[in-house]
């Protein structure tokens, strides 16, 4: 497997850097792959734009940033506007159906899903939307084992929050199972 690039984007405080870190750590420490995670964020620890880039490969990873992303997760309209153009042809765009209204045209598969709503209603806490997103990405790309993700998740979350986070992860995985493409992937260009 050559470079596989995942970008998780949204606003500061949504926990996407942590989600990217867990995905990369799972691949690197527990699945025997190479993984690099980098981030791009504003000086604010809350608000502002924030993104986490995970590169997974069986080979050495030199350039640590995104070239053409295989999967883009966007939890804000701003982030989808900013990064949709980076998705490679035939790649995947996952957007939150509450926060993203306009999806830019492009040659990618689109999943418009209730990521934040699932965290809020099904899991019960909106702050675990990042872990729902993690489960969702893991379920969709099937590149990093769920077992590895669980191991990495366990070491990275505060004690006492395991049950909540594992429920969020499962909810994300289920979301992936039920997910269907919002728009036909065979379409060359999609515009709304």
């Amino acid at each position: 497997m050559e470079r596989y690039e995942v970008k998780l984007s949204g606003s500061g405080g949504q926990g996407l850097i942590l989600a990217g870190m867990i995905l990369a750590e799972a691949a690197a420490l527990y699945d025997g792959k190479n993984a690099v995670q980098t981030q791009s964020y504003g000086p604010e620890s809350r608000g502002g734009s924030s993104s986490s880039i995970v590169i997974i490969s069986n080979q050495d990873i030199d350039y640590p940033k995104a070239t053409k992303v295989d999967v883009l997760l966007a939890l804000t309209q701003e982030s989808v506007n900013k990064y949709a153009g980076d998705i490679k042809d035939g790649g995947i765009l996952i957007v939150d159906e509450e926060t993203v209204k306009d999806i830019p045209a492009g040659k990618y598969k689109i999943y418009k899903l209730p990521v934040i709503a699932t965290a809020r209603t099904q899991v019960g806490k909106v702050i675990v939307a990042n872990i729902v997103a993690l489960g969702l990405i893991a379920g969709l790309i099937e590149l990093v084992s769920i077992d590895a993700i669980k191991k990495a998740l366990f070491t990275r979350i505060p004690k006492g929050t395991e049950e909540l986070n594992f429920r969020a992860l499962e909810a994300g995985i289920n979301l992936a199972k039920e997910a269907h493409l919002t728009v036909d992937p065979n379409l060359e260009c999609i515009s709304y």
């Binding site: 990369a24 190479n34 993984a35 995670q37 980098t38 640590p64 940033k65």
Partner: peptide, 9 residues
């Protein structure tokens, strides 16, 4: 900053 914040095994 890239190297400082980059995560690797």
């Amino acid at each position: 900053e890239v190297v400082g914040h980059m995560r690797e095994k």
